[in-house]
């Protein structure tokens, strides 16, 4: 097999392993083990007059169904599977929250642009026009995100980091602004107490902190697994 063909096949194998590991139940050493397994199978099959592509297809069939493999790992690692479900639920929660926030910000942006540059049209018409103009931008972002997910199949962990941090920063900013408003109207309560009361009363903030703690826990666990695998 030439270098290009080998690189191509290795990439295909990595993609298939990412598919097997969609629920992120495999450690790094286990992924390495599967990589070795597939490449050994492929190299044996290519010696029997199969092309690299055919050998890869045969290796996949011999390995068995992706769903069965995931199901078996879920049975062996129930806690990790549960963690994955929690993370997925949080991802959906933050995703919806983020999209609502994004729509609100875009609406505000459109309103700001409308008042600033009304293009000589009626206020309502300008607002509508600018909102429609923002739509391709939204679609483009969606397309970019979709491409990113396709390229990197195990995106959920990274996405939750980003979304969690955005929500965290957003809520924090909103709360600081509320305290600023509270102070400006001369509220009788201590500003710090007011701030914490607001923070603890916000589910988004609690979920953000919860997801960050979970992520740190998993990060430490992955590091520990890697260390143990090397030891």
């Amino acid at each position: 097999m030439d270098t290009n063909g080998l690189k191509n096949i290795e990439q295909k194998v990595q993609d298939h392993i990412a598919e097997l590991n969609r629920n992120q139940l495999l450690s790094e050493s286990e992924r390495d083990e599967l990589f070795d397994h597939f490449l050994t199978t492929i190299s044996t099959l290519t010696k029997n007059d199969l092309s690299a592509k055919e050998a890869f297809e045969v290796a996949k069939i011999r390995f068995g169904s992706v769903q069965d493999f995931r199901k078996e790992y879920k049975k062996v690692r129930p806690l990790k599977a549960f963690y994955h479900h929690v993370m997925f639920a949080l991802l959906i929660y933050f995703g919806v929250y983020f999209l609502c926030g994004l729509a609100m910000v875009l609406g505000m942006l459109a309103l700001f642009l409308t008042t600033k540059f009304n293009l000589g049209l009626e206020l309502r018409q300008t607002y509508l026009m600018l909102t429609i103009m923002l739509l391709p931008l939204l679609l483009l972002s969606f397309y970019g995100f979709k491409k990113m997910v396709e390229r990197k199949k195990s995106i959920s962990i990274q996405a939750i980091w980003i979304l969690g941090l955005i929500v965290f920063t957003g809520v924090l900013g909103r709360r600081i602004y509320a305290v600023y408003q509270f102070k400006s109207i001369g509220g009788s309560m201590n500003a710090t107490d007011f701030f914490f009361q607001l923070m603890l009363g916000d589910y988004n903030m609690i979920f953000s902190i919860f997801s960050l703690v979970l992520l740190i826990y998993v990060w430490v666990k992955i590091r520990r697994d890697r260390y143990l695998a090397l030891a």
Binding site: L20, S29, E30, E33, L34, H37, T41, R62, F63, G64, S65, D68, F69, E72, Y73, K75, V76, R77
Partner: peptide, 20 residues
């Protein structure tokens, strides 16, 4: 099904029957 071997190896590892 070759893929069925790896969860078994993991399970045996968790029970302390094998080491890697």
């Amino acid at each position: 099904n070759e893929g069925s071997l790896y969860p078994v190896l993991l399970k045996l590892g968790q029970k302390g029957c094998i080491r890697s």
